[in-house]
């Protein structure tokens, strides 16, 4: 089990840490649908039309150090994306694994689950 977990985590770290830098930068399906109907300028600001994105508001935590899958202060894009991915994988494993471990079913001393 330990070997499988370590192997799986290594794969996840490789995907988030390295492969992620080569992911497509195009808007995803939802974002594409949300932009449909509006025109945008070079700075990606809406210049006209009517679309779902018009009333979009900023994220409350947009200033967080890992916002938008990068690390604040690291200018190299590969390094910034990759390290934020590594942090995300480890954080998700710790939080998810920790919570699942806490709520798991424990065998009691008298043998009843």
């Amino acid at each position: 089990m330990k070997r499988f977990l370590i192997g799986g985590l290594l794969v996840a770290l490789l995907l988030a840490g390295v492969v992620s830098s080569f992911a497509s930068g195009s808007p995803d399906g939802l974002d594409y649908a949300a932009r449909e109907g509006c025109t945008f300028n070079a700075d990606d600001e809406i210049t006209g039309g009517s679309c779902m994105l018009q009333r979009e508001q900023d994220h409350q935590l947009g200033d967080s150090p890992l916002a938008d899958y990068g690390i604040k202060g690291i200018d190299n894009e590969y390094l910034s994306t990759g390290l934020s991915g590594v942090a995300g994988v480890l954080l998700t494993f710790a939080i998810g694994g920790g919570l699942f471990w806490l709520i798991r079913r424990r065998p009691t001393v008298d043998g009843k689950a």
């Binding site: 799986g8 985590l9 996840a12 770290l13 998810g96 920790g98």
Partner: peptide, 9 residues
């Protein structure tokens, strides 16, 4: 926990 981390990646 691993599945969650893998989905994040």
């Amino acid at each position: 926990g691993l599945v969650a981390a893998f989905i994040f990646a």
